[in-house]
Design a protein around this nucleic acid. Structure first.
Lengths: 333, 333
DNA sequence: AACGCTTTTGCAAGCGTGTGCAAATGCTGC
DNA sequence: GCAGCATTTGCACACGCTTGCAAAAGCGTT
């Protein structure tokens, strides 16, 4: 019993006693079909289990309905949260998400974009890494739309969504100082992405403006373990910090755990901590971390809105605001 | 400057001075092309930025290369970990993942499968929820392959991958008893999925076999907050448990936090805890949770292997083993 | 040079759909 | 009944690709 072919519009047409065009029009919103034929077509379609072939439709319309999401480290809390809401909203907009994982190997963002082109994706949303300019050109030339999320750079053409990292970082300084902290530190990873660096620079500059120095430490990849190592390093510093801004909540979690367990520090009494992203774990009582919320909802909304609106295919930048979520890891408040 | 059409094989052929077929064959592994024409085609293709149109190819070959992943609660640690590795392996196998998020609304698994059919996905992998039998039939009739992960049920046709939940649960009983615990409890959500229930039943049965009773509590959705509530309920129980098996690591995290913070219990001295999934947070020092590891690697490997091997399109069940990861939340060891 | 064989090439049909165009149909008002 | 109009329908072509088939080309042998 080798599987039969899918049922085609032709078969539906025959069963309904109409032409194939009528079937096509029935499934094309806004096409001209009389109520009566539509009914008969629907009936036949249901009976046969007909589903429009989107490959063929995409071929004709030159619009596949596919949006390619390019991500690495999908299993990370912030990434998966953004991914979740993006797919949600894309589906609501009648699109479907194609997920390309760019872990390992470096040219993989480029490979991912080529994959997107092969499937004639209507757009690609890049959440990690950066494509080569030549590939960007290729995409734009082919009318493929491009969205860059939190990957600020100078590529032309696409929609770029970014946060006010710099300004957010300066708010942390204020909070730390108001809490009576004077020995500030910044814990960063070595990833060196623009948003991470913007937080670092924003923090350092704002502190300097108040005449305060900042100890900056960078280590490894942006995860829990790196946070632990950073705590080891920063807390054994001769002049131990009394406040640390971690570039990421994951770093902050590792940092806090090591600060408490290994250095027996009480938070926020002896050490104030702030993070960024507002991942789910930041709200867990073990951490109760004061942090900045990634506006994932707004990011997704803006991205999808831009994709839907065909008039806006010009270059565009959107800067969103990261709200400070005040919890218990900074004194006062 | 409205975006030009994508470059087609025709244009490549003209530029290379060969027929369209030659171009097609150049990009079809194993087709008969002379080295010389292949070279010329490749040259022209590179110059023009040609990418094979997979929509058209899928239409002809009746094989799209798309595999549909049907998931809800993508942002959950275990789900996102599985998703990550699955996409990884699918890509290595030359497939591409289409992600359908089935949060909200109940018929959405069915809708997701219809979507998969419309895009003529070669297969669908269901990680959450359960499709209606009629839809399953529709898929199989159309030659679409189906993989169910941890969703044991009686649907015919697909590949079903499950864990030895029952046996794992009984190992926890042994560990608890060996640690000197006698007042056992099981913390579950109300989701009632087969795997969760298998863990519950396995635990209760194994305990009963040793003459021990188990207090079972169920609440809410399988997340951190539910764990907190479950702790509230179980730890105020007249005869307070000295060991609790949480159906899920997320539940366990919430449970532990509330046990420590609200009831000032020390783990594992006054309370032993075990979880299931081995999410990343289970290894964090705040939790240091003894738990069972979801064999995500093996799950993905088996699923992809089955998809690749066209000979195995008969029904199949695979039962995988969940390793016990011993950490500090149970005494002894 | 003629032969047989293998490899390469081009032709053309077909995959399942959307849509412009012209023919057909239905409806309204004389 | 018929002109005038709006609506519906079917035909046929196009989308970009794969592939069976037969013709063409290459090549070694006699």
């Amino acid at each position: 019993m080798t599987a039969r072919l899918y049922v085609s519009a032709q078969e539906v047409a025959e069963r309904a006693g109409v032409s194939r065009s009528a079937v096509s029009r029935t499934f094309t919103p806004g096409a001209s079909v009389s109520p009566e034929t539509r009914r008969r077509v629907m009936e036949a379609a249901d009976a046969l289990g007909y589903q429009v072939n989107h490959l063929a439709r995409g071929l004709m319309r030159n619009e596949s309905g596919i949006v390619c999401l390019i991500v690495s480290e999908v299993a990370t809390p912030y990434r998966s949260a953004l991914l979740s809401i993006l797919t949600q909203k894309l589906q609501n907009a009648g699109k479907v998400a194609m997920l390309v994982n760019t872990d390992r190997s470096d040219g993989s963002v480029d490979r991912a974009l080529k994959q997107a082109i092969r499937y004639r994706a209507d757009a690609s949303i890049i959440m990690s890494g950066l494509p080569d300019k030549s590939i960007t050109q290729l995409c734009l030339k082919n009318g493929q739309r491009l969205v860059l999320i939190n990957r600020d750079d100078d590529q032309p053409g696409p929609l770029r969504i970014n946060l006010d990292d710099h300004e957010a970082a300066s708010r942390v300084v204020t909070a730390f100082v108001r809490a009576g902290c004077r020995r500030l530190a910044f814990a960063n990873s070595q990833a060196g992405t623009p948003s991470l660096m913007a937080r670092e620079h924003g923090f350092v500059h704002a502190a300097r403006r108040l005449g305060l120095d900042v100890v900056v430490e960078r280590y490894g990849w942006t995860g829990y373990e790196a946070g632990q190592v950073l705590a080891q390093r920063l807390l054994t510093h001769q002049d131990r910090p009394d406040a640390v801004f971690c570039a990421t909540d994951l770093l902050a979690c590792g940092f806090m755990d090591t600060a408490r367990r290994q250095f027996s520090l009480s938070i926020p009494d002896q050490l104030c901590v702030a993070g960024f992203d507002d991942i789910e774990q930041a709200a867990w009582t073990s951490y109760d971390l004061t942090t900045f919320a990634q506006p994932v909802e707004a990011i997704a909304t803006e991205a999808v809105r831009w994709l839907e609106d065909r008039s806006l295919h010009e270059e565009r930048r959107i800067q969103l605001h990261a709200d400070l979520v005040w919890r218990g890891s900074i004194r006062g408040g």
